[in-house]
Lab assay of single mutants.
Amino acid sequence: TFELKGKVGKVVKIAEDHYLVESEGDKWIAYSDEKLSLGDRVMVVDVDGLKLKVKRIP
């Protein structure tokens, strides 16, 4: 299986209740415990079905 946990991506869209993150050339629906901005670099900390939980990284 394709393992996304630990992968790095970038926030490419902000929606009302989720983010769109591009990682490894694909776009994924993501959510975070912190507020993210367009262009933020993020790391995948968990995968919930087809949704990614991400956190901001420097």
Score class of each variant (00 low, 15 high):
35 K>W: 10
43 M>Q: 06
7 K>R: 07
36 L>K: 00
28 W>F: 13
8 V>Y: 04
56 R>Q: 10
19 Y>F: 08
49 G>M: 09
6 G>M: 01
33 D>H: 08
46 D>Y: 03
12 V>H: 05
33 D>Y: 06
28 W>T: 02
56 R>M: 12
11 V>M: 02
31 Y>H: 12
36 L>E: 00
10 K>G: 07
1 T>N: 15
8 V>M: 05
27 K>Y: 11
54 V>E: 00
47 V>C: 12
29 I>S: 12
42 V>K: 00
40 D>S: 06
3 E>K: 01
25 G>L: 04
40 D>I: 04
46 D>N: 03
10 K>A: 11
18 H>E: 11
23 S>A: 15
48 D>K: 05
16 E>C: 12
42 V>F: 02
29 I>C: 13
45 V>D: 12
50 L>K: 08
39 G>V: 03
44 V>E: 02
13 K>P: 00
40 D>A: 06
44 V>L: 02
50 L>Q: 10
46 D>Q: 03
17 D>H: 11
16 E>I: 12
41 R>A: 13
22 E>I: 11
28 W>D: 01
49 G>S: 06
29 I>N: 09
56 R>H: 11
44 V>G: 02
22 E>Q: 05
52 L>H: 02
16 E>Y: 08
37 S>K: 05
30 A>V: 13
34 E>C: 08
8 V>P: 13
21 V>Y: 04
58 P>N: 07
41 R>S: 14
10 K>V: 07
53 K>V: 06
40 D>C: 06
32 S>H: 02
57 I>C: 14
15 A>N: 10
14 I>L: 09
20 L>I: 11
39 G>Y: 13
7 K>G: 04
27 K>M: 08
19 Y>K: 00
58 P>E: 12
4 L>M: 14
1 T>H: 15
42 V>Y: 01
55 K>C: 15
6 G>R: 00
21 V>C: 08
24 E>H: 03
5 K>R: 03
33 D>T: 08
33 D>A: 07
27 K>W: 07
31 Y>T: 13
43 M>F: 09
33 D>N: 06
22 E>T: 05
53 K>H: 13
15 A>S: 09
3 E>T: 01
18 H>D: 11
9 G>P: 01
38 L>G: 04
12 V>T: 12
15 A>H: 11
11 V>E: 00
48 D>F: 13
29 I>G: 09
56 R>S: 13
52 L>R: 02
49 G>R: 07
32 S>K: 07
6 G>Y: 02
45 V>Y: 07
19 Y>L: 11
58 P>C: 14
2 F>T: 15
29 I>E: 11
6 G>H: 02
38 L>R: 06
55 K>H: 13
58 P>T: 11
7 K>F: 03
28 W>N: 02
34 E>Q: 07
41 R>M: 13
48 D>P: 03
32 S>C: 11
26 D>K: 07
41 R>V: 12
41 R>Y: 13
25 G>T: 05
11 V>G: 00
37 S>T: 10
29 I>T: 06
47 V>H: 05
39 G>D: 14
29 I>W: 12
24 E>V: 04
1 T>M: 15
50 L>D: 06
53 K>P: 01
19 Y>T: 04
16 E>S: 11
19 Y>P: 00
31 Y>E: 14
30 A>T: 14
9 G>F: 06
3 E>R: 01
11 V>S: 00
28 W>R: 04
11 V>N: 00
21 V>G: 01
42 V>A: 04
40 D>T: 09
20 L>G: 06
35 K>T: 12
56 R>D: 02
